[in-house]
Design a protein around this nucleic acid. Structure first.
Length: 555
RNA sequence: GCCCCCGUAGCUCAGUGGAUAGAGCAGCUGCCUUCUAAGCAGUUGGUCGCACGUUCGAAUCGUGCCGGGGGCACCA
């Protein structure tokens, strides 16, 4: 029996109690769903519900009294072994071993589908992340978004959402020209411009470009800037795409800022904002009156010299996303961009949308790194970079992705590179993967003994050990974890769940022998435990898959 | 000055109003002739930054302080 099934069974019990007149609650005050929790302490049974506490006010009776009314009916459910009224009015429920063990069979039957829910079915989500300038390697800050963004997309999809992963290429504006100028200077053996980029990758890029186009050096300086900028852009974009692909992070759409302008999307965006009546002219510039909606000050769309601003691109981009049919537009931004939030929301409001619905900005704290006990500073301009590529080379894709996904994005993340490099048990990814490998090995050994996972012969009532119950209880939580990770946009919950699951499995493994020893005859208990192992392996694999981390058969 | 985030064990951090606040690491002690010891068991460690409030109940919600980080451009 899953928690969801128990919850709906309790809802029926409540309805029956109301129908019989044992309880009197106004229909509109009845809870829509009954919350079923796993108590922290095993003494409190398999599941607990606080429904009686919630009903106390509306029913006008003491919670314990309501609880005992419900308890009598709950005790009659065939899946329930016992029920107690505890504390201020909790109902503590213990399931029959067979009812709980049945879950193992359900999981193996559902396979990869176990953990897929429909809480977000029908919602179209645009998930934009990384969105770096194509003028340098992706550094560790981007790397956090690569891991979290991709995991987020997978989690939202598991909840039924229709997700498009999008990378906005900032290929327009002053930074690109500085990039071009830096390449030109490097190619000509001159020092980098004051406001340019200094990293060693600039020199490497310049050399590569000259190798392919020696004639570039014959051009006048202003033309050189353009050709070097464009050649560098193409190579850097390709490099970013390659390294992200290596990092198992893929995008459905790479959206160029230039293309917004070339396609007329900027004009269309401006027209839309004008129609909604929030555009005005002042000091020969064109503004959006974002102060109508919570912004600190109005923002310029078109400067007095006729140039459109970056803000105009943002506005047009938003309008374009809505035109493409996205209900929810999620932006993953670094803490240094938090000033954008009100602006983005104001854009949505100015376009006639409700920003509380159409815009979600997740502000992530920056990643700090320590190496040799000292903080590693990141600066692309100075060239002091730890790139995504470097990190993958050092610790591997699995460890990097898992570590970066393990924390809520609004908590600052401190990585000790020395520790990550070690690839020891300090990194929980190994702990979780090890559980998967351990079960894989066990299933291999089992099949050598002629023991296979047999769902028809499975007897769920044999899983009576405490550790088996603990494990089953945690396995049953997986769909709810996925649903809440999706709803709260917090993929790290999946990682934390996996660690809890791995712990429960290792404890079970230590206490419960799965395969027959030596010349022992296989029993139905061995078979039942094998099904439980298979179920655990499935959930570990499904969860790791949501994080984009591999599930090794051997370690 | 205004806005956002954070403050939980020695360290790094979990904890979407529930019961006695948790994990990993670090320290100490045990457990491999048997399914992977990358594991398990035990033990040490807390004014949940401070105060007031909301209620049956607050680490969690509200207000105000204290401390740390970040942001406030006709920049990109």
């Amino acid at each position: 029996m899953t928690p969801a099934e128990l919850s709906s069974a309790l809802a029926s019990v409540l309805d029956a109690a109301l129908a019989s007149g044992e309880l009197d609650v106004p229909p509109d005050k009845k809870p829509t769903t009954i919350v079923v929790e796993r108590p922290r302490s095993a003494e409190h049974g398999d599941y607990a519900t606080n429904v009686a506490l919630q009903l106390a006010k509306v029913a006008g009776r003491p919670p314990r009294e309501i609880a005992s009314v419900l308890a009598q009916r709950v005790a009659e459910l065939p899946e329930v072994a016992s029920v107690d009224v505890a504390g201020p009015g909790f109902l503590n429920i213990t399931l029959e071993a067979a009812a709980q063990g049945e879950l193992a069979r359900s999981i193996v039957r559902a396979g990869e589908g176990f953990g897929r829910v429909d809480t977000m079915t029908g919602q179209r989500v645009n998930l934009e992340f990384i969105s770096a300038n194509p003028n340098g390697p992706l550094h560790l800050g981007h790397t956090r978004w690569a891991a979290v963004g991709d995991a987020m997309a997978r989690v939202l999809e598991a909840a039924g959402a229709d997700v498009v992963r999008e990378f906005y290429i900032n290929d327009r504006g002053v930074q690109m020209d500085r990039f071009g100028a830096s390449l030109r200077e490097a190619a000509n053996g001159r020092p980098a411009p004051e406001d340019g980029y200094h990293g060693g990758y600039i020199t490497d890029l310049a050399v590569a470009i000259i190798g392919e186009h020696p004639d570039y050096l014959e051009l006048p300086d202003d033309e050189q800037l353009v050709v070097f900028r464009e050649a560098g852009y193409a190579r850097q974009l390709k490099q970013q795409q390659d390294v992200l692909s290596l990092f198992r992070t893929t995008f459905d759409v790479w959206y160029s800022e230039r293309s917004l302008h070339e396609s007329g999307a900027v004009e269309r965006g401006l027209a839309r904002l004008r129609d909604e009546g929030h555009v005005f002219e002042s000091d020969r510039a064109i503004w959006l009156r974002t102060t109508d909606f919570d912004d600190d000050k109005d923002r310029v769309l078109v400067k007095s010299d006729g140039e459109t601003t970056y803000f105009a691109s943002d506005a047009a981009y938003y309008v374009d996303k809505r035109a493409r049919g996205f209900d929810i537009n999620i932006y993953l931004l670094g803490a240094d961009h938090h000033g954008y939030v009100n602006r983005l929301r104001a854009i949505a409001a100015c376009a006639g949308d409700d920003p509380d619905v159409s815009i979600e900005v997740l502000i992530g704290q920056l990643v700090k790194m320590y190496r040799g006990g000292e903080e590693v500073r990141l600066s692309k301009r100075k060239g002091d970079i730890v790139s995504l590529e470097d990190l993958v080379d050092e610790v591997g894709v699995d460890a990097a992705r898992y570590t970066l996904c393990r924390y809520p994005v609004d908590s600052p993340l401190t990585l000790d590179l020395d520790l990550l490099v070690k690839q020891t048990n300090d990194n929980p990814v190994f702990y979780v993967q090890y559980a998967h490998a351990r079960i894989s090995s066990l299933l291999r050994n089992g099949s050598e003994l002629g023991l296979t996972v047999d769902l028809d012969a499975f007897d769920p009532a044999l899983l009576t050990h405490d550790r088996e119950g603990d494990l089953l209880g945690i396995l049953g939580e997986f769909p709810r974890v996925v649903a809440s990770a999706a709803e709260l946009r917090e993929p790290h919950r999946v990682a934390r769940f996996l660690e809890e699951l791995a712990t429960a499995y290792h404890k079970f493994y230590d206490a419960c022998r799965v395969l027959p020893r030596g010349d022992e005859e296989p029993t139905s208990t061995h078979s039942a435990r094998l099904v439980l192992c298979a179920a655990t392996r499935q959930v570990l694999a499904n969860g790791l898959g949501l994080l984009g981390v591999s599930s090794p058969e051997r370690m």
